[in-house]
């Protein structure tokens, strides 16, 4: 009995006729798709390689890539806490006499430094309970400083929500954590 198998072998559909039973006879048909794809791909490779010569010859990355460390980034957790303390003091004493651009820069740098506290603490031998304290305190401090930053943006010389008592408390807590971040020589 003549049976017709239809297989979708590639980009071409092909049919194979076979006689079922012992000693099936098969009329082979087209089996070219993979071969075509391979030859097509090699052709494409050669073509685009010719095109690409220009890209590589002109290429590479000429400009030097760097990971810039901001100048105001403190080198250690202790230095960061000291910076936060100093800058908060200046918020009270000096900032209101500065011009708007300077206030903006100072406040934005303060936010950066408060944001780096957890990172600098994690780059020290500080243990988890102390680090968790730093994390909580720095988050609260960041929220206060963000409120100050928002107020300073609206009115650089006006009343700012300094929350001096709470900030002093948080700074005292952070200062207590400094010895835990000491790198032993």
């Amino acid at each position: 009995m003549l049976r017709k198998h239809t297989y979708d072998h590639g980009l071409f559909r092909c049919q194979r006729h076979s006689i079922s039973g012992a000693g099936d006879a098969v009329i082979p048909s087209r089996h070219l798709p993979v071969g075509l794809a391979i030859f097509g791909m090699i052709g494409l490779w050669i073509g685009v390689c010719m095109l690409g010569c220009g890209a590589v010859s002109s290429g590479g990355v000429d400009d030097h890539l760097e990971h810039h460390l901001p100048e105001h980034k403190p080198v250690s957790f202790a230095a960061a806490v000291e910076q936060v303390r100093l800058r908060h003091e200046r918020l009270v004493t000096e900032f209101q006499t500065m011009d708007a651009a300077s206030v903006d820069r100072e406040v934005s740098e303060l936010l950066d430094i408060v944001g780096w506290l957890t990172e600098l603490a994690a780059d020290s031998p500080m243990k988890k309970p102390e680090w968790d304290e730093v994390n909580l305190s720095s988050k609260e401090l960041l929220a206060i400083d963000q409120r100050i930053a928002a107020a300073a943006k609206v009115n650089p010389r006006g009343e700012w929500p300094l929350e001096a008592n709470r900030v002093a408390g948080l700074l005292a807590l952070l200062t207590k954590m400094v010895p835990f971040a000491d790198v032993k020589p």
Partner: peptide, 20 residues
């Protein structure tokens, strides 16, 4: 069969990008 051919076409995109 067809799947192999499409896989090769798919991989030729990687070659194209590498060259360009």
């Amino acid at each position: 069969g067809a799947s192999g051919a499409y896989v090769l076409i798919g991989l030729s995109g990687v070659v194209l990008l590498t060259v360009l």
